[in-house]
Amino acid sequence: MNAIIEVQDVSKSYGGVVANKRVSMTVQAGGITGLIGPNGSGKTTLFNSIVGYHPIDSGSIKFEGREISKMPVQSIARLGLIRTFQQTRIYAAMDCTQNMLISLPHRKMKFLDAFSKHGESDHAKAERLLEFVGLYEKRFLNAGSLSFGQQKLLEFAMALMNEPTGLLLDEPTAGINPTLINGLIDRLKRANREFGITLFIIEHNMRVIMNMADKIYCLAHGEMLAQGTPQEIQNDQRVVDAYLGTH
């Protein structure tokens, strides 16, 4: 396994607040990597730095060996690195199928392809993925009328529609009904295994992340506190302290 995302000594501060301080980490291709940490520890900042939402102060970020720290969001997305949002972002005024169709990978399209209609295979793919996340019955409903949890599932399906190489998920289970979480874990694992998508997941739910990830990083106060397998992280006293507030 080789590294698909390499973060080296990345620092980012907002005014006087240091959100990330010399953070280094790698995401192995084909695996599931987790990122945990107490609220305000800089997880989402790190995500935003990787996908190009804001410039970083110093350091280097590489995707498949290519430096991406100075690239804008769209260019990074077109390399095949897609993210989902903590507050879900879907096209609320359109139905689920349209949401899916819009998410077709534009990087694999030529400009003139935009002037063709969505083909049978596009519709079939959209419906297959909607079925995969369990939203097939809702496919003609406006995305805005779905519950928050369902919108998260839709956003996940849209990301899959885009055929990314790497997928960054910001709290995929937050706001999802506990009984649905098991199904979601299963689907994330299948997306990783069957579609070969490398996953990098921010997650607060320890049960979820310990179940899925093969490697976990823990941030606290903007610094990388610990890294290791789920077992190592669970047994790391510093991590426990960070979460309980003695840090």
Binding site: V51, P72, V73, Q74, A77, R78, I82, R83, F85, R89, I90, Y91, A92, A93, M94, Q98, L101, I102, S103, L104, P105, H106, R107, M109, F111, D113, A114, F115, S116, K117, H118, M158, N162
Partner: peptide
């Protein structure tokens, strides 16, 4: 035009341009 992928893409820009960018739409 509105029935093509082009129409869908500009609707996506209208509904959530940041999302459209994040999905790699030009």
């Amino acid at each position: 035009l509105y029935s093509t992928r082009f129409g869908a893409a500009i609707n996506a820009i209208r509904d959530d341009e940041e999302k459209a960018e994040a999905m790699g739409i030009h």
